[in-house]
Design a protein around this nucleic acid. Structure first.
Lengths: 112, 112
DNA sequence: CGGTATCCCTGTCGATACTG
DNA sequence: CAGTATCGACAGGGATACCG
């Protein structure tokens, strides 16, 4: 695959978090550690398969860390890495802009 | 489709520019107006169909404006709207972070 | 609880040919 | 030059069932 699209930097970030669920996962994790089931509930309609998938990618990309505990019942915690927090912070103004954009659009097309 | 994923704001922005080529198109446009063929060359391996598609979406989303001139040969200019510039500016630090991320990864896996 | 395996559906993108 | 039409490939994601 490599990078056929320009390496705008933005493309890198989109490659990292540009999937359907990753931003939501990251937001949840920004609040603190979460277990698998918590994320499953917190994120909305995501399936187990996809959540696990996204989590593995996030882990691979060093944005999220996974901690498994030995006891029973099974327990695994997911948390943002420093890198993940960095990105999350960076994305905060973007999120605000996105909200404002949405509000603006709502005004233009109230009948939506 | 609507928005099943959380409206994190980031998801909004990803919906706007999270496709394969839009960031690159936006970067080009950030340099100033461009004609269709200029974008086609500037963006790399994008096909006419996809470029036209992306441009229409960008226009629909009020990020890009289209200006057609009557004369011949045909001439159409694309430019960032104020909103588009806003977003582009906002994304600049994100792009820098993305570059740094990439450089960092390159160090970790030189044999990549 | 915390996952993995399977199968399918859909959207996105790519190649190519054609039009005003 | 600046697109549109058509067809096909492919990856991401969804539903469901099963495992340690």
């Amino acid at each position: 695959m490599s990078r056929d699209a320009q390496e705008c930097g933005v493309n890198v970030v989109i490659g990292l978090i540009g999937s359907k669920w990753k931003p939501s996962i990251l937001w949840r994790l920004a609040e603190g550690d979460h277990r698998f089931a918590e994320l499953r509930r917190g994120v909305s309609g995501i399936s187990e398969k996809v959540l696990a998938e996204q989590l593995r990618e996030l882990e691979r990309d060093a944005l999220v860390s996974r901690t498994a505990y030995e006891g029973f019942p099974l327990r695994v915690d997911y948390a943002l890495t420093p890198l993940g927090e960095e990105l999350n912070d960076l994305l905060d103004p973007v999120a605000q802009w996105g909200d404002a954009y949405l509000a603006d659009k709502a005004l233009e097309a109230p009948g939506g």
